[in-house]
Write a protein that binds this DNA or RNA. Structure first.
Length: 921
RNA sequence: GCCGGAGUGGCGGAAUCGGCAGACGCGCGGGAUUCAAAAUCCCGUGAUGGCAACAUCGUGUGGGUUCGAGUCCCACCUCCGGCACCA
């Protein structure tokens, strides 16, 4: 009888599962498909970085694997796939720096990370593996992009519709075109604003072909626009905000990043703001993530108010959430980029205003917001008229107003807005109270609700009511209307890089932007020797995407007219591929469609993926972008559910102890020694400080999963990560603790198999007491798995094993049931023990053992007896004893008797199964 | 500044609906086994006082509610995460 040889066991079972296709899950319609309930358990797929797997990855993967294995044993079809999010900047930047093609680095990174993932024995259906860089995959990423390109958002339907519907409606005169190129609705009794403001309209047939195209292009969910972007000339690309550090530099390479207007592809996510917001309510997600998404969407209600500009015969529109403070508006502020700045500035003020605007333009967004202490601004020389009281108020330009939100202009109410208050104090502008705060609070700078004062006929109204009344008044007098605003911006969807999905479009001088036909997909990247972007030190140099150098690829023919055309040079951002991979997993080899509808309906019903686990760092962007794409596909009839992720769970970050010497220099673990009086340096004896930090090379506190597996095995690793603490909590890795769970594996082995020194405790008949413990364990582990409380499930298994050793024997059938309960957590050990208990088949589809409530209910219970809330003794009583008997038993206890002696019992509290409390005086 | 989350032994953590605080594991102390060590096994392990039985204190701090508070309420402190001039 050999000991627990985890290395051999793990190799053997991983091979067996692979050879037998144990975890290959057929789809509906496949020969071997069994019609059963389903469960879709998904991990956020990894980006295969050069550094390989870190200990954070397997934490979530182990949790989902336990759930997946448990569900299979509960007789459920489980979809549990894995893949790679493999396009993106890190691989490309590495490739550029080392002169290797990103395809090669990506492939070798995938090989490395997959080898590591496979070491853990996760029950993935590897036949469904995908990488976002596979042409078979990104063909459909491009196809979905074309769905976006060929759709518009119909506000009447509250949904995306094919662009042909819009063209048909325009041709039929159902819609007409406003002066701004907007689409307006042609109603029977006149023209009503449909999209945007209606000022004048044209009929569709009155427009030239080019004008028609511009109108259509302007309605597409994927459109091009000139927008301010983070431009990094050294990387030769625009960057997403999250790729820019707080210092205004690129996360990759630490190069300067500039704010600059560039023509870019945008996705119209803002149309979905309300649906993305409201959809959150029905999701089983952590509340904190929902709140983050709500804040990101940032819906607010208020009014757009029009201020007349008598000096130049223009109007200035502002958005405010506090129309009830209109009477306190004592000045106005325009963002430096506001289009009216130039027009309203008086000659006397022109040079000063221009200097300010130019200075603001030169600053990055981050520089502008960083200087948050001091408010700056200049007076334009012009005045506006407050619509509620006809007062002339000065118009300023200041960079605390952003062009990107609302109308880029505000009415300033210094008495009741912190920013306006600071600004007014700096520039000595009048401050007029219009809200009376509750007793005892200063009205200056008071931003809460209150009662109106100095507001004419509205005096005395509480804030909420005032808001309603003043908006009614504004609408009645044509000076404004009710409005809703969002912080959410449209999604900047293009990058000037090589390693991303090419846009499946061409630019034709005659036909405009023309999508490729579906049969031309995938549009693959051109082979290039030099795929590095044209970089520059000059922030104003024009972008030169690397694809521009592949002239053979760039110059093509127009699919519409057959004339010469050029391809789009931008590529898609890294988020694109991860927006829909969960759908491809349902049917990953389909070359007819992105996913077969039957497979999609089976796996995604009723509300989307049953369990989605990943890090909280994707709380907003990935989860919001994917929900957006999903809703578009839903509107167009391609998927069956309005939301993709029914249940979301975030694993906490695994950090680790870091040690520093007196100078603050990190000390690696080999040089750290634990002593009674603290931690010190092994060589120098110097006292070290200990802290818990994110793992990083520079802190010398990185733990490599490969090393841990080599020393203790995958089952131990899995158990340790689950045993550390609650899944969602952030917790420190402590290598010292690993032997504890490893010892548990050895104990289980010794219990059932034995080793050279000790025979197993396996017997024919098990102890009655142990049988009760086993029933309790089966219930506890099943409940804990479903509640994702793996740490307490493992603790319960340890207790059971301890009890078995105490009992001195375990029945064969008890051992079998215990092994089934253990298997989702330590599957290799589970399988090996199952085999040694005489089973020829894998336990993966063995039914989860039953338990009997009657076996769990104890015959006698021990109650604590408290006197005045303090525990004075313990008594054992029958589980079904009544209150009187319980109290009698309690008073019979010596220590209790002593405690109540000579006192009056004024109250007796009996909590069944728990305790007795006697209140005495 | 605003919005979340969390503070429990030497350490990671447990504690159902307000009901025996510290499960389980690590570490530590003692013992068994061993020529010895590793491994393994057994016992002990919140603090203070006491030979002991036992007593008192104890879940970030200060108040409160309750027969009873780690758990509920109020105020505050610290740490972690997110957002950040969003009008």
């Amino acid at each position: 009888m050999a000991g627990y040889d985890f290395a051999a066991i793990e190799r053997k079972w991983q091979q067996r599962w692979d050879d037998d296709g144990t975890f290959a899950q057929p789809n509906p319609g496949d020969d071997s498909f069994a019609d059963k309930p389903k469960c879709y358990v998904l991990d956020m797929f990894p980006y295969p970085s050069g550094a390989g797997l870190h200990v954070g990855h397997p934490e979530g993967y182990t949790a989902t694997d336990i759930v997946a294995r448990f569900m299979r044993m509960r007789g459920v079809n489980v979809l549990h796939p894995m893949g790679y999010d493999a396009f993106g900047l890190p691989a490309e930047q590495y490739a550029v720096e080392h002169g290797v093609h990103p395809r090669e680095t990506t492939q070798s990174n995938i090989d490395t990370i997959e080898r590591q993932i496979r070491l853990f024995g996760f029950s993935y259906d590897w036949s469904r593996r995908i990488a976002t860089t596979d042409p078979d995959y990104f063909k459909w990423t491009q196809w979905i992009f074309l769905q976006l390109f060929n759709s518009w958002y119909d506000p009447a339907a509250g949904a995306a519709r094919p662009i042909e519907d819009l063209i048909r409606g325009l041709s039929a005169g159902e819609y007409v075109v406003g002066v701004g190129g907007d689409v307006v609705y042609n109603t029977a009794d006149g023209l009503a604003p449909y999209l945007g403001d209606m000022l004048g309209t044209s009929k569709w047939h009155e427009l030239t072909g080019e004008q028609q195209r511009a109108v259509i292009d302007n309605q597409r969910l994927a459109y091009q626009a000139e927008v301010p972007v983070n431009w990094c000339p050294k990387l030769g690309t625009v960057l997403a905000n999250e790729e820019v550090t707080n210092e205004g530099r690129s996360e990759r390479g630490n190069w300067p990043v500039y704010r600059r207007n560039l023509r870019q592809w945008m996705l119209r996510i803002t149309c979905y703001a309300d649906r993305l917001l409201n959809g959150l309510d029905g999701l089983d997600w952590p509340e904190s993530i929902k709140i983050m998404q709500r804040n990101w969407i940032g819906r607010s209600e208020g009014a757009n108010v029009i201020f007349e500009l008598p000096d130049c015969d223009e109007q200035l529109e502002v958005y405010t959430t506090r129309p009830d403070t209109l009477f306190g508006a004592t000045y106005m502020v325009l963002a430096p980029e506001h289009p009216l700045v130039e027009e309203i500035t008086t000659d006397a003020r022109r040079s000063e205003v221009k200097a300010y605007v130019d200075a603001a333009a030169g600053k990055s967004e981050l520089e502008r917001t960083a200087e948050t202490k001091e408010k700056t601004g200049v007076f334009t020389g012009s005045y506006a008229v407050n619509p509620v009281n006809d007062e002339r108020i000065p118009i300023w330009v200041a960079d605390y107003v952003m062009m990107g939100y609302g109308t880029g202009a505000i009415m300033a109410v210094p008495a009741h807005d912190t920013r306006d208050f600071e600004f007014a104090q700096t520039f000595d502008l009048p401050i007029v109270q219009v809200v009376a705060p509750p007793e005892g609070e200063d009205w200056r700078g008071y931003t809460g609700d209150g009662v109106a004062v100095n507001s004419g006929e509205f005096d005395g109204l509480p804030t909420a009511e005032f808001k309603r009344k003043i908006i009614d008044w504004l609408e009645a007098n044509d000076r404004g209307r009710r409005a809703v605003n969002y912080k959410l911006r449209d999604w900047l969807f293009s990058r000037q890089r090589y390693w991303g999905e090419p846009f499946p479009l061409v630019h034709c001088p005659d036909c405009g932007t023309v999508p490729l036909p579906e049969d031309a997909l995938p549009l693959t990247l051109p082979e290039m020797d030099d795929f590095s972007p044209q970089t520059s030190d000059d922030p104003d140099a024009p972008p030169q995407p690397p694809l521009g150098k592949a002239t053979d690829w760039v110059n093509t023919t127009c699919p519409a007219c057959g004339g010469a055309a050029v391809r789009e040079l931008n590529t898609m951002p890294q988020w694109a591929g991860s927006c829909w991979y969960y759908l491809r997993f349902c049917d990953p080899r389909n070359d007819e469609r992105f996913c077969d509808p039957t497979a999609e309906r089976y796996w995604m019903s009723p509300g989307g993926i049953d369990l989605y686990v990943g890090g909280a760092e994707h709380a907003v962007l990935h989860l919001l972008y994917a929900r957006f794409w999903h809703k578009v596909l839903y509107d167009l009839g391609h998927v069956s559910t309005p939301e993709p992720f029914a249940k979301l769970y975030n694993q906490g970050m695994i950090r680790s102890f870091a040690y520093r010497d007196a100078r603050g220099m990190p000390v690696s673990y080999e040089d750290v020694e634990q002593r009674d009086d603290g931690v010190c340096h092994r060589q120098t004896g110097e006292t070290l400080t200990e802290s818990v930090e994110k793992m990083s090379k520079s802190l010398k506190n990185v733990v490599n999963p490969d090393d841990v597996i080599a020393e203790y095995g995958a089952d131990t690793f899995r158990l340790y990560e689950m045993f550390m603490g609650p899944l969602e909590a952030s917790k420190p890795w402590n290598t010292q603790d690993v032997p504890g769970v490893h010892r548990f594996c050895h104990r289980v082995w010794r219990l059932i198999v034995g080793n050279e020194e000790t025979p197993p405790l396996l017997g024919d008949r098990g102890d009655e007491e142990l049988e009760r413990a086993l029933h309790k364990l089966i219930r506890k582990v099943g409940e804990d798995i479903q509640a994702m409380k793996f740490n307490t499930a493992i603790a319960a298994m340890m207790e059971f094993v301890n009890a078995a050793f105490k009992a001195g024997a375990i029945g064969r059938d008890q051992a079998e049931r215990f092994v089934l309960v253990l298997a989702p957590f330590a599957p290799h050990l589970g399988e090996e023990l199952w085999e040694r208990l005489g089973h020829g088949e894998s336990l993966a589809y063995e039914p989860w053992p039953d338990y009997d409530e009657a076996m769990i209910a104890a015959e006698t219970v021990e109650l604590a007896v408290q006197v005045n809330g303090k525990v004075r003794g313990r008594v054992a009583v029958d589980a079904d004893a009544d209150e009187e008997a319980v109290i009698a038993a309690a008073l019979a206890d010596d220590k209790v008797a002593t405690a109540v002696e000579g006192k009056t019992i004024v109250k007796k509290i009996v909590v069944p199964g728990r305790l007795v409390n006697l209140v005495v005086t």
